[in-house]
């Protein structure tokens, strides 16, 4: 059985978020085709795990998707497609899927199920995903520990344009890479990235 970690957002306690991580996935192409066919059995958000920076990164997208759904302002068809859409800094749905969703060669996956009805339990999610995903389930800690361990920070930086800064004259340029071997600083760097990304996701499009 796949290991499911369930998150409860403050203020939306009745809508649990079930999350699973998989590595060495071999059937991404199949999963993708099911999504393209809009098979109701595959009403999940399947994400490229290398694009998820941290637990808060995913929770923020989940919140925005859930909130848009519950206040009837979704821009996409389902809460799960909304989640993928909300991750992207721009308003292009196709592009969101290309950057954050699966490609045929994706091997590391984060699967998310927003539970909008009590019948969607962690067990049901686990059972269903174990059955359909060919890969190795990886456990997520209670506080989201482990989520983000496969993050490709360079790719993520690029998509949110975190490496572009404005200098005095207003010209845009690449930020100088701060070389810092200090391991303790790595957590800080992720935290900084995360904070900017959450802000970008919040302010996008409107």
């Amino acid at each position: 059985m796949a290991a499911v970690q369930t998150f409860y957002l403050p203020h939306y306690p009745t809508y649990p978020i079930h999350v699973c991580m998989f590595k060495d996935v071999s059937n991404a192409a199949h999963l993708r085709s099911q999504l393209l066919e809009a098979n109701p059995e595959f009403d999940f958000a399947f994400l490229d795990a290398t694009m998820i920076l941290s637990p808060n990164h995913l929770l923020s997208a989940s919140f925005l998707a859930l909130h848009a759904h519950l206040t009837s302002r979704s821009k996409t068809r389902t809460p799960h497609s909304e989640l993928v859409f909300r991750l992207h800094p721009n308003n292009n749905i196709g592009e969101s899927y290309r950057k954050f969703g699966l490609s045929d060669s994706t091997t590391h996956i984060v699967a998310v199920k927003l539970s909008l009805s009590p019948s969607v339990t962690a067990e049901a999610v686990s059972r269903h995903l174990s059955q359909h995903i060919e890969g190795t389930s990886v456990e997520i800690g209670e506080g989201g520990e482990g989520m983000g361990m496969w993050a490709d920070r360079e790719k993520i930086s690029k998509i949110y344009k975190l490496d572009v800064t404005t200098d005095r004259s207003g010209k845009k340029g690449r930020k100088e890479k701060v070389v810092n071997g200090d391991v303790g600083r790595e957590g800080d760097e992720v935290k900084e990235m995360e904070m900017v990304i959450l802000g970008i996701m919040t302010t996008k499009g409107s």
């Binding site: 904070m195 900017v196 302010t203």
Partner: peptide, 20 residues
């Protein structure tokens, strides 16, 4: 706020919101 954080100026980050 996002601009400040991006450029490394210490301000509170934006964790979420609904401007509408």
């Amino acid at each position: 706020l996002v601009k400040c954080r991006k450029e490394g100026v210490k301000v509170p980050g934006v964790l979420g919101g609904d401007v509408e």
